[in-house]
Design a protein around this nucleic acid. Structure first.
Lengths: 339, 339
DNA sequence: CTGAAAGCGCTTACAG
DNA sequence: CTGAAAGCGCTTACAG
C-alpha cells in the first residue's frame, strides 16, 4: 500500500479510503490511486486488515464429514449466503470425534473469525462459553442439550412419524428402525417420532442403533431380520443407512418392497431411479443451510435471534418402496429379479 | 501475549519461544509461562503470526463444486495430509466459472497462503504467473494447456480405452461416448482413449458432449438413441453422467444390459448395488489427493518436483452392466422389470 | 478532502 | 538463557 501511495503521490490512508470506498476522496485522486493500484500490481493483504480490525471476515463451518452429501450441500448453500456479504467460509471436518472437534475449533478460533456454524460431533464437549468466544454461533442439523445457541433442525419427530405411518397405513406392524448413534440428537429426535407413531398404532417399537454408515446398517438389518422372522418393514436413519438396508435385504435374499418395505430419511439422487424408487423423507438441506447462515448474519447485525430450535419442515416423498406386508418365506432363499 | 508475559514476569519474546518450542528456555521459566498461559486463558492469534511471517500456514483448495463426491473425497484426503503438517486447508468453489474462479483466487491469495491446489474451471483463464504468486501450486484432476505446474491426473486415455474395449470385446460396434464439456482437459483425455479404442476395432466413434450433469446426460443419451437405432452401448463421462444415461435408457423403455450395455467412469456407492451393478472405471480419488498434497509439500520443502503430469492409475471394475449386443426393438416400448 | 501517528498480535534479527 | 527494538500491512481515531 505504501508503494501505491508513493506512486500516486498520496498517503497510505488515502489509498485505504479509495480501496474501501469509505470517506471523502476527490474524484481526481480516486482515479490517480486506482491507476497506481493497477500500475503497481497491488494485491490487498487480508492478514493486515484482519489484524487491525481484530476480526476476520470469515465464518467457520465445522461439520463431521464433507463426503457426506448432506454436509456438502450445507457448505454450498451457506457459502452462497456468506459470499454476497463478503464473508469467506472456512470448512473444517471433525471426523465426528470430540477431540478433533476441539482442535479444529481452536484452529479456526485462532483466525479470529466473525462467526461459527457447527454440526457438533456425537459426544461433543462444546459448551456455551466455547461458542461465546466466536461472537456469533449457530448450530445446524444437530443440537446440543443445554446450549443457549440458535439451532437449525428439521422437524425430525413429525417427519419420522409420517414415514413410519406410511408403513403402518400399508398394514405393517413389525417395523424395525435402523438408527444412528444412540446419543446423537438426530437419533433421539427421529427415534421419538418413530416410537410415538408405532405405539399410537398399537404396535411394538423395534430399534437398532448403528454408526450411521452403510456397512453398519447392512450388518444391523441382517441381524434384525434373522432375529425376527416377522419383520416386514424398515425405516432408515439417513441415506447411507438406507443403502445399507437395501444391501442387507439382498444379502438375505429378500426383495423390496415384495418381502420388506423400506422408507428412508434424507434423499439421494439414486433413490429416485433405483428399482424400486425409494420412499423417503426429503430434508430441505439447502434451506437449512440458508436459514442457519441468515441467523448468523442476524446475530452479527445485532438483530434479536431466538436461541432455541429453528425448524425447517421436511416432506415425505412417496415413491414405490412401500407395499402391503406379506408373510416372509422362512425356509427358502429368493434371488432378486435379474433383468 | 503481553498479558501472559506480565503474569509470568518475563518478556513477550520468551512467551513466544515457549509457545513455539523454539530456542533455549530454562525449564523453570517454561513451566511458569505455561502456567500463566493457562491462568490467563491465552488463545494464540494466527493473524498476528501470519502478518509477521508474511505467510499463512494455509493451503487453498479451489475446486468447481463440493457437492460432486469426487471433490469431497479430494478435500478429505488432502486435508489429512496437510493437517499433520500443521497446514489448514481452505476450500473454495469456483462453480466451474472462470470469473468466479478468478474472484476466489484473489480472495485466497489475500490471505497469503503457503500454497494452492486447483482443479481449474472449464474455460479457466489461469496463467503460470497467476499461480507463481502462490509459491507452490499443483493442479489436480484437470490440467491446463501450457501451464508449467505439476498436475495430478489419472491415466484417463488408457482407462477409457480399457472401458471401451470391455464393450468392444463383448461384441458391440455402435458405442456412444457421453462426454463432458467439449474443452475440458478431462473430456479431451477420456475422448482420445475412447476414439483410439473404437478405431482400433475398426468401428466408428459416436460422441455427445454434455454439461457433465445427470439431466444433461439424460437428454443427450435420449437424442443419441433416437438418432441411431443401431446403438447398443454407452460409456459415461463421470458418475452423474452415468446416472443420466441409466435414466435416459429407462425413459426410452430400454433395459441395461439387455438392450444397451453401459460402462461408467468414476465409481459411486450406488453403482455396486444397483441392478445391474455398473461396470465402471474406478478413479483412485484419495490417492490423487494425497499425491497432489505431497507434491505441494515437496515444493514447499524445496525438493525438486517435475512440472508435468503425475499419473495415478485407475482400474476397471468389471460388474454386470455389459452383455453381448442384441438388435434393439424399434416399434415396441418395453417396461422395466418391476419387482 | 487529505495526512501523521499509533497500534492490532505476533516473530525476527540483534544484543547481552 | 533472556530481553529491547522493529516491523509485517493494514485501519482507526485524530488533526488539519
Amino acid at each position: 500500500m505504501k508503494t501505491v501511495a508513493a506512486h500516486a503521490g498520496v498517503s497510505a490512508q488515502t489509498v485505504s479510503r479509495v480501496l474501501r470506498g469509505t470517506g471523502y476522496v476527490s474524484e481526481a485522486t480516486r482515479a490517480r490511486v486506482l491507476a497506481s493500484v493497477a500500475a503497481v500490481g497491488y494485491r490487498p493483504n487480508a492478514v493486515g486488515r484482519s489484524l487491525r480490525a481484530t476480526r476476520t471476515p470469515m465464518v467457520g463451518l465445522l461439520i463431521t464429514d464433507i463426503t457426506n452429501p448432506f454436509y456438502a450441500t450445507l457448505h454450498k448453500s451457506t457459502e452462497a449466503v456468506f459470499r454476497e456479504r463478503g464473508l469467506t467460509l472456512m470448512l473444517l471436518n471433525s471426523d465426528d470425534d470430540p477431540a478433533t472437534e476441539r482442535t479444529q475449533l481452536d484452529l479456526v478460533s485462532s483466525y479470529r473469525p466473525s462467526g461459527l456454524l457447527v454440526a457438533p460431533a456425537v459426544h461433543s464437549t462444546l459448551t456455551t462459553e466455547d461458542l461465546a468466544g466466536f461472537g456469533a454461533a449457530v448450530l445446524v442439523s444437530r443440537t446440543l442439550p443445554g446450549l443457549a445457541v440458535p439451532s437449525v433442525v428439521t422437524n425430525e419427530p413429525e417427519a419420522m412419524g409420517e414415514a413410519t405411518r406410511a408403513l403402518l397405513d400399508a398394514g405393517h406392524r413389525r417395523i424395525v428402525a435402523v438408527l444412528g448413534p444412540r446419543d446423537a440428537s438426530t437419533t433421539l429426535r427421529r427415534e421419538s417420532g418413530y416410537r410415538d407413531a408405532v405405539r399410537a398404532a398399537g404396535a411394538e417399537p423395534i430399534v437398532r442403533y448403528t454408526d450411521q454408515t452403510g456397512p453398519g446398517a447392512r450388518a444391523a438389518i441382517r441381524r434384525a431380520l434373522q432375529a425376527d422372522p416377522g419383520l416386514t418393514a424398515a425405516v432408515g436413519f439417513n441415506a447411507p443407512v438406507t443403502e445399507g438396508i437395501l444391501r442387507g435385504l439382498r444379502d438375505e435374499g429378500l426383495e423390496c418392497p415384495r418381502d420388506v418395505s423400506v422408507v428412508g430419511f434424507t434423499d439421494a439422487p439414486w433413490m429416485s431411479f433405483y428399482p424400486p424408487p425409494i420412499t423417503v423423507v426429503g430434508q430441505p438441506v439447502a434451506a437449512m443451510g440458508e436459514l442457519a447462515a441468515r441467523l448468523l448474519l442476524d446475530v452479527l447485525d445485532g438483530k434479536p435471534v431466538t436461541p432455541g430450535l429453528h425448524v425447517v419442515p421436511s416432506v415425505l416423498l412417496r415413491r414405490e418402496s412401500v407395499a402391503p406386508p406379506r408373510p416372509r418365506p422362512h425356509d427358502e432363499k429368493r434371488t432378486p429379479c435379474t433383468s
